[in-house]
Design a binder for these strands. Structure first.
Lengths: 117, 117
DNA sequence: GTTATCGGTTAACTAATGGTTACCGGTTAC
DNA sequence: GTAACCGGTAACCATTAGTTAACCGATAAC
């Protein structure tokens, strides 16, 4: 993971940065998949395993989301010569940079559940 | 803003927390609106002013998003007895808790723009 | 009287998201 | 032989998200 660099930005630049982030990480599933991979970084993460653990995602969506994450260099896809053939998905070094984002969302979500209880 | 509380959660609970967060903060506009309000916390933020500064949002979307943020107690809506009548939107105390989320997204977006350059 | 601003609403529309079902070839376990 | 698991894809459909344009009453400026 990289050293966080403090930046200065105008409000306009900040809003544009949020837009950029959401273009790549937005939607219902991508951050959940990234968090799952982050939590299982030393394991083999096959398609089916991810699908079982990211609750509710369909094969179609998982396939699409993983492809998009791969295009943006956040995830790698490796076909393993096992029998039957399995496919391993893993976070890239760059993918690790998403961790703080998922972390704040986890914190907020847990806190919110407490709050509305 | 509240003191961050360290929590322990299983991966499953973490993914559920992300789902919860995205249900309330997800979509194209909510986090941008929240960031804008956070950056202008001591000012009067009228409907039109927000619409001008959150670039690209239509009146319909802004109206809808503000209503949802209000329902979730993140924003207040106050009709001001000016002439013409203006409406002021402001972050609640609870709304401030969203700051870390927007902060990590701003950082990630700025960093990403550097990276792909 | 005309135009503009304020804070929206409404209707009509398109684009994006996401779900469901069925199916593919190959492999293994029974 | 049959069923199940692996990693998907294809077709179809429904829902949601989001856009555009027109319009509202009230007020104010010219």
């Amino acid at each position: 993971m990289e050293t966080p660099i403090k930046r200065e930005a105008t409000c306009e630049q900040e809003l544009a940065a949020i837009r950029d982030s959401l273009e790549i990480l937005g939607g219902k599933w991508k951050l959940r998949i990234m968090r799952y991979l982050n939590n299982h970084i030393d394991e083999k993460n096959t398609f089916k395993k991810i699908q079982r653990e990211v609750e509710g995602i369909s094969a179609k969506m998982l396939s699409k989301e993983l492809r998009e994450l791969e295009i943006n260099l956040l995830v790698t896809r490796t076909v393993m010569e096992t029998r039957p053939v399995t496919v391993n998905y893993a976070m890239t070094e760059y993918g690790l940079s998403v961790f703080p984002v998922t972390e704040t969302l986890v914190d907020w979500g847990l806190n919110h559940r407490e709050k509305i209880k």
